[in-house]
Design a protein around this nucleic acid. Structure first.
Length: 600
RNA sequence: GGUUGUGUAGCUCAACUGGAUAGAGCAUCUGACUACGAAUCAGAAGGUUUAAGGUUCGACUCCUUACACGACCA
C-alpha cells in the first residue's frame, strides 16, 4: 500500500458515493490491480461487484467512475473501459511526485509500524549432530534466514534460533562406532571437517551393524531377533543409558564429538552466510518438558493411564490421543518441544514463533500447538509452522542408504567452481584482485543457489536439477545481480563525468517513457511485496518481485540511453531512477540472503 | 483405512487470493554488440490448468466426486 493506492481508492469511494451507490463502500474494501499490458493504464478497477449497488451496468458504471476521476482526481490523466474493467492512466507529474516521495530519506527506513515492534522468533536449521548438512538443510537454512530478514524488514524484532538435536540414540551410534573403529583420530589428525568425520562414523555404524545382523541370522536368529540383539545396537543403547546417568567418560566423549560437529557446522553456516542469535540444545531442554507435563496433569488437561504413561486427548480438536510421557517416565519428542517452547517464551517474550520445519512434521506441529492451547499458554496462538516440501533430485528422493544425498559443502564448492569457470570464460574479472575475484565467485554461486531454492513457494515439493541450479541466465539470482551491477556501472560513469551541468533532483517535469512509469510503479510496490511475504512467510514473493523489477529495468535499459541524455534535469531524474532501482534490487536480494555485487 | 498437501507449456516455476486473451525462464527457431556491460534485449513456437460435475456476470483459484504422486497417523 502506498500513497497513490490510497489516493485512488479514496477517489473511487468518493466517486461511488457521488454516483449514489448504496451502501457506499469504504476505500479499504476497494481493490486495485495492475492493468494488463495490452491496455492503456496502470491501475485497473473491477466494477462488476458494485454494479448492483450503483444501479448501473458494469460498463456504464466504469464510464461514470472514469469521468468522475478524471474531473476530480488530479492523479488520473485518462481512462478507458473494457467490459467491466476501468483502466486508469496516471499523469506523468503524479508518477514523478510519487517517485520524489519514494526517494526521500524518510521513506528509506523502516515501515509504517511504530515503536511497538512485535517480537518474533524464527527457529531454523535445527540439525542433528550425527551427520553433515545436505541439500534439504540448505532449503531450510535459506528459508529461515530469509523469513527472518523479511519479518524484520516488515517491522518485527526478530530473534534467530537454532535448536540442536544433540541427544538420543543416533548420537550414541556415532559414538560407539568411533570407539570401535576410530583409533583416536580427530578432525585435525585426519584433516576432515568435524561434522563430516562424525557423519563418517554414523555411516560406519550402519555398515557394521548390518554386517552383525547378517551374521546373527546365519547363526539361526530371525531377522527381528538379530536386529535387536546385534552388539553394536545394544552397545549404543547402553551408552544412551550411561549418558542419561551422567557417566563421566560417556559424557566426555559426547562433548568432544559434538564439539567437532559444531565446529563443522559453524564453518558451513559461515560459508553459506546464515547466522543465529541463540542456540538451544535438546540436552538442555528435554527435562523442562517434563515440568510442562506435570503442569498439564495438575491442570487436569492431561491424564495418566493405568501403566502410568501420560496422554492428552485431542479428539475434540480433530486429532488423536497423544502420548506425552512414556510409562517408564522417559520423554518423547513432543515432551522436549513443550519445554523448548516455554524456554523460548521466557527468554524473549516472543508473541510469534516461526518454526521452519519440513512438511513431514505437519501433524506433529499441529499437536504441539493444540497441547500448548490446552495448557493455556499465551504464546500458543503465535506459533506458525513454516512447512516446506522436500527437495527431490532428478533421480528421485535423496537416500543416504543409496549415497544420493547431496552434501551441502560439496554442492557449494561445485557452484563456486562453476561460477569461476563461467566468469573467466566471459572475461569479466579484468580489474579484480585474486581475493576480490574469489569473493565474487562465492557471491554468484550463493546467489544462484539461494535464488533457485527460494523462488519456489515453500510448501511445494521441488526438484533440484543440478544443471539448472547453476544456470546464470534467465530466471536466476545472477540475472538480478547482473542487473544491479549494470546499474552501478552507469552510476560510476556518471560520477566520473562532469557534474557542472547537473540539475537538482526532482527538477524534471517532462514526459515519461512507458518503462519509466513501470519502474516507478514497481518501486512503489516494494512495501506491499514485503508485507505479503511476511504474512505468507514466503520468500518466493520477494524473489518474484526482484526478478520482475530487474526484468523491467533491462527493458528500460534497452530503449533509454541515460548517459546520452542531453537535458540536464531529465538526465538527473534518470540517474536517480537508476540508483533507486539498484538500491531496491540490493535490498530485495538482501532479504533473500543474497549479496548484490558492484561489478561482475 | 484415516488425515493432509500437491497436480498448470517438453522441463522448472508464476498467476497480486474470484477478474480481461493463464504469464516467465530453460530447451528449440529468428533477429540485435564500432552501443551506459549481450550473464542482456526484441520476436516465433509451445495450454482442454489431471478428469467429470456444480456455484456466478466471470473459476487455475471456491464446493462435490474420481484419478495420480507425496507426507503423516493407526
Amino acid at each position: 500500500m502506498n500513497d497513490l493506492d490510497l489516493t485512488l481508492r479514496a477517489a473511487l469511494a468518493d466517486a461511488l458515493a457521488a454516483i449514489g451507490a448504496t451502501p457506499a463502500p469504504a476505500p479499504d474494501s476497494l481493490a486495485l490491480q495492475p492493468t494488463r499490458k495490452e491496455f492503456a493504464g496502470a491501475y485497473t478497477f473491477v466494477t462488476f461487484p458494485f454494479a448492483k449497488a450503483a444501479g448501473k451496468a458494469p460498463e456504464a458504471l466504469g464510464q461514470a467512475l472514469g469521468e468522475y476521476l478524471r474531473a476530480n482526481c488530479p492523479a488520473v490523466s485518462g481512462y478507458n473501459v473494457v467490459k467491466g474493467f476501468l483502466n486508469l492512466e496516471i499523469a506523468d507529474g503524479e508518477w514523478l511526485n510519487q517517485f520524489a516521495v519514494l526517494s526521500s530519506a524518510a521513506n528509506d527506513q523502516q515501515p509504517e509500524t511504530s515503536n511497538q515492534k512485535p517480537k518474533v522468533m524464527v527457529e531454523y536449521s535445527s540439525p542433528n549432530t550425527n551427520k553433515p548438512l545436505h541439500l534439504g538443510h540448505l532449503r531450510n537454512n535459506f528459508l529461515g534466514y530469509s523469513v527472518a530478514a523479511i519479518l524484520a524488514e516488515n517491522g518485527a524484532e526478530v530473534t534467530k534460533a537454532n535448536l540442536i538435536n544433540d541427544r538420543g540414540i543416533h548420537i550414541c551410534k556415532s559414538m560407539i562406532a568411533y570407539q570401535r573403529f576410530g583409533h583416536g583420530e580427530t578432525p585435525e589428525s585426519s584433516g576432515t571437517k568435524g561434522d563430516h568425520l562424525v557423519g563418517h562414523y554414523y555411516v560406519l555404524f550402519d555398515k557394521h551393524y548390518r554386517e552383525e545382523v547378517r551374521q546373527l541370522q546365519n547363526e539361526g536368529l530371525t531377522e527381528e531377533q538379530a536386529k535387536k540383539q546385534a552388539p553394536l545396537l545394544t552397545g549404543a543403547q547402553e551408552m544412551l543409558l550411561r549418558w542419561e546417568q551422567g557417566d563421566l567418560a560417556t559424557v566426555e566423549l559426547w562433548r568432544r564429538m559434538n564439539g567437532w560437529v559444531y565446529d563443522g557446522f559453524e564453518q558451513t553456516y559461515k560459508s553459506i552466510g546464515v547466522d543465529f542469535d541463540r542456540y538451544y540444545y535438546e540436552s538442555d531442554t528435554y527435562l523442562l518438558g517434563k515440568e510442562r507435563v506435570e503442569e498439564g496433569l495438575a491442570k487436569g488437561v492431561f491424564f495418566r493411564k493405568p501403566d502410568s504413561s501420560v496422554w492428552v486427548d485431542l479428539t475434540t480438536e480433530g486429532l488423536d490421543e497423544k502420548l506425552l510421557l512414556r510409562a517408564d517416565g522417559t520423554s518423547v519428542y513432543i515432551t522436549q518441544d513443550l519445554g523448548t517452547a516455554e524456554l523460548k517464551y521466557q527468554e524473549t517474550q516472543c508473541e510469534q514463533s516461526v518454526y521452519v520445519i519440513g512438511d513431514e512434521q505437519n501433524y506433529h506441529m499441529q499437536v504441539l500447538q493444540a497441547v500448548l492451547r490446552k495448557l493455556g499458554k499465551p504464546y500458543a496462538e503465535g506459533i506458525h509452522h513454516l512447512s516446506y516440501g522436500m527437495v527431490d533430485l532428478p533421480s528421485g528422493r535423496m537416500k543416504s542408504r543409496e549415497g544420493t544425498v547431496v552434501d551441502a559443502d560439496e554442492l557449494v564448492q561445485e557452484m563456486i567452481d562453476t561460477a569461476r569457470a563461467t566468469t573467466q570464460e566471459m572475461g569479466k574479472i579484468d580489474g579484480l584482485t585474486e581475493t576480490e575475484a574469489e569473493t565474487l565467485f562465492r557471491t554468484l554461486a550463493l546467489g544462484a543457489l539461494k535464488f533457485f531454492l527460494l523462488k519456489v513457494e515453500p510448501k511445494k515439493r521441488m526438484l533440484f536439477n543440478p544443471a539448472e541450479s547453476i544456470d546464470f541466465q534467465g530466471h536466476t539470482g545472477p540475472f538480478v545481480q547482473y542487473t544491479h551491477a549494470r546499474i552501478r556501472a552507469i552510476g560510476r560513469k556518471a560520477a566520473a563525468g562532469t557534474t557542472a551541468t547537473d540539475a537538482s533532483p526532482g527538477a524534471y517535469d517532462g514526459a515519461l517513457q512507458p518503462t519509466e512509469r513501470e519502474l516507478i510503479h514497481q518501486l512503489l510496490g516494494y512495501r506491499t511485496a514485503v508485507r505479503v511475504a511476511a504474512r505468507e512467510l514466503a520468500p518466493s514473493v520477494i524473489a518474484q518481485y526482484a526478478y520482475d523489477l530487474a526484468r523491467t529495468f533491462n527493458r528500460f535499459y534497452a530503449d533509454v540511453r541515460v548517459l546520452d541524455e542531453a537535458d540536464a534535469s531529465r538526465r538527473t531524474f534518470l540517474l536517480t531512477l537508476c540508483a533507486r532501482v539498484a538500491a531496491t534490487l540490493q535490498r530485495s536480494l538482501g532479504l533473500l540472503g543474497i549479496t548484490a555485487p558492484e561489478r561482475m
